[in-house]
């Protein structure tokens, strides 16, 4: 189960409003490669995982992604809370504003609402771990794209932190896959699904 700590994992202190940045950074809240997808993906994939170390990786990283979700929301909130009506009306943010004012609602920058099609939980451990490694790379690229657009160091700072976390998480999922490979038959890793087939993952030939 989960506890909440009344603290952001990394500080977010943005003093200059910016509708244009808010419009794109919201993608890391509810977009296809964002933190909501990441946390739901990893936390959903845990059930049925027969190896506790791999379930531990999914739990701990999935939990950290919830903390990142909170940080992204804090960034968008601070970028928008002091916007004037003129700034809103003259920006691409006005479409979001009309439906949500400056509330936080999970959607991609392009407007597609967050939905479960943005992640997969395939129930096959090899497949899910590759999904997770790909997810971390996609998130990293999204942060790269955001970083190219930012000149304000107050925004840059937490975004750079979030991006670096993706690199570390990629490594951990890759290591989880190595641990799994150890437990499977290297002559044919795909002979069975360790989450579903009972004759699986016993190092038998």
């Amino acid at each position: 189960m989960w506890s909440y700590e009344k603290r952001l994992q990394y500080p977010v202190n943005i003093t200059t409003p910016n509708a244009k940045l808010a419009e794109v950074i919201i993608s890391q809240y509810g977009g296809p490669d964002g933190e909501m997808g990441a946390s739901m993906r990893y936390l959903s994939q845990r059930y049925g995982v027969p190896y506790p170390e791999i379930a531990a990786v999914l739990t701990d990283i999935g939990t950290e992604e919830l903390a990142h979700l909170e940080m992204v929301a804090a960034i968008v909130h601070q970028l928008t809370k002091n916007l004037s009506m003129e700034e809103i009306e003259n920006s691409g943010f006005k479409a979001y504003y009309v439906d949500h004012t400056i509330g936080i609602w999970p959607q991609a920058a392009g407007g597609i609402p967050f939905n479960a099609c943005e992640f997969q939980s395939k129930g096959d451990l090899i497949t899910d771990l590759f999904e997770d490694m790909a997810a971390e790379q996609k998130a990293r690229t999204t942060y790269d794209n955001i970083l190219r657009m930012i000149k304000d160091p107050e925004v840059c700072d937490p975004i750079r932190f979030l991006r670096q976390r993706e690199v570390v998480h990629f490594q951990r999922f890759g290591e989880a896959l190595r641990l799994l490979q150890e437990k499977l038959d290297s002559k044919n890793f795909y002979i069975c699904n360790p989450e579903f087939d009972t004759n699986c993952g016993c190092n038998c030939k």
Binding site: F130, M133, F170, Q171, F173, G174, E175, L177, R178, Q181, E182, S186, K187, F189, Y190, N203
Partner: peptide, 19 residues
Amino acid sequence: FMNDMMGNFPIAMAYVPMQ
């Protein structure tokens, strides 16, 4: 940390080195 069961890296799979 690994036992030697894997030998080389068989194809049709991807591998991330352990830290």
